[in-house]
Design a protein around this nucleic acid. Sequence first.
DNA 1: GCCGAACCGTAACGTACGGTACGGTAACGG
DNA 2: CCGTTACCGTACCGTACGTTACGGTTCGGC
Lengths: 223, 223
Amino acid sequence: METDVSQSGGEAQNAQPEALTDRQKDVLDTVLRLLVEEGDHLSMTTVARRASCSKETLYKWFGDRDGLLTATVRWQASKVRVTPVDQGNPDLISLVESLEGYARDWLKVIASDTSIALNRVAVSHAGSGKDNLGAIVLENGRFALAKRLKPVLDAGKRAGHLAFEDAETAFRTFFGLVARDVQIRLLLGDWPGLTEAAIEADAARATQQFLALYGAKTRPEGL
Amino acid sequence: METDVSQSGGEAQNAQPEALTDRQKDVLDTVLRLLVEEGDHLSMTTVARRASCSKETLYKWFGDRDGLLTATVRWQASKVRVTPVDQGNPDLISLVESLEGYARDWLKVIASDTSIALNRVAVSHAGSGKDNLGAIVLENGRFALAKRLKPVLDAGKRAGHLAFEDAETAFRTFFGLVARDVQIRLLLGDWPGLTEAAIEADAARATQQFLALYGAKTRPEGL
DNA sequence: GCCGAACCGTAACGTACGGTACGGTAACGG
DNA sequence: CCGTTACCGTACCGTACGTTACGGTTCGGC
């Protein structure tokens, strides 16, 4: 068996999120933990020691350092997959609850250690070379949220609670209202005080503001 | 003269944004250009060659690699400083123009190559070690914008055009409406198609939405 | 004209780390 | 019982790069 698996289209390098041994998942979880602890500075030696495996195994499984990182990002991404909730014709209450729920979840995600670490790594690697990481993170972060939220928005529109022309634009506004400057501040090492309570309040505020902008009929006086 | 300037409180290491030789500014501009081209991967050798100076000089002037990077970020930050426009009692038109102007400027900044490069570097360095970079970038980006925008908001409030309790919260909403997912997407290597025309449209939209949320009396029918 | 400071160019050093090679061991199938 | 497979542990190699050292040059001041 040749050593150069990476070029010959071998199975190891391409390592799809599924088809991973339990042992391999363990290793990737370790990488994840290490990524949270010391960012992009992890060395293959450190990974091998912490994962109690040999470097040779790492290279056989993941090709090279980039492959390991990519597999890790993919692995984490595959874990976040949530069951999409599509509703037929919601009333206003359940629509609000749904939106608040998404806002809450989203804030929790971007405030989590793993998300911050992963985004940092992806941003670092974005400028140079094989740029999969940024795309992967985006695909499983922002885009996944958009995909899950779109049916909710459409349902709200059908039910006459929301008025917008382009769902994508509406989603981006919702995104902006929820995340505001939080994500960039977290990535830059600032701590915007995102406690459990603050997340709750932010989700409610963002939802209210979104409804104020895109609500069809209900424009509450109090706001 | 001892070599260890970094610890003994020497003048070279702390290199405040001002008090820089023209030659030093040239060097930092070169670093900036290099940072845009190849991100954090620049080596001291490359910098020296491109700046037509010796590595020894780099080390004497900036202490070490981190010092060079920090000085570069500070230098760029000091260049962005804009004259604050404080208005006494604006009419609604000029308030809208003012807000649109800030939105436009802000979008242009975060879409610029240098901003992206600098933010990438700062994010990369945020997790580990001396964390000045993130704070510096934040201080001269988001916080500077907030500082410049606050008097405008206050003036709008005094004039009766805006209604909000906390200027900081209002600002963060404005920030969210303007930037939305643009900044994170840019940092992750995505290209959200931010042409000149799109920036113009986005600034107008964000301002309209902000007024819809925080405008005191004027709630336009058309929106 | 001489001295020292500042600087250039380049060579050299030390080291960290990505990647490889190899010997040893445990499991397993025949 | 033997070969194969998969893995561990470790030693090893090559190189890139941060950092330092040093000889040579320019230039301002005396």
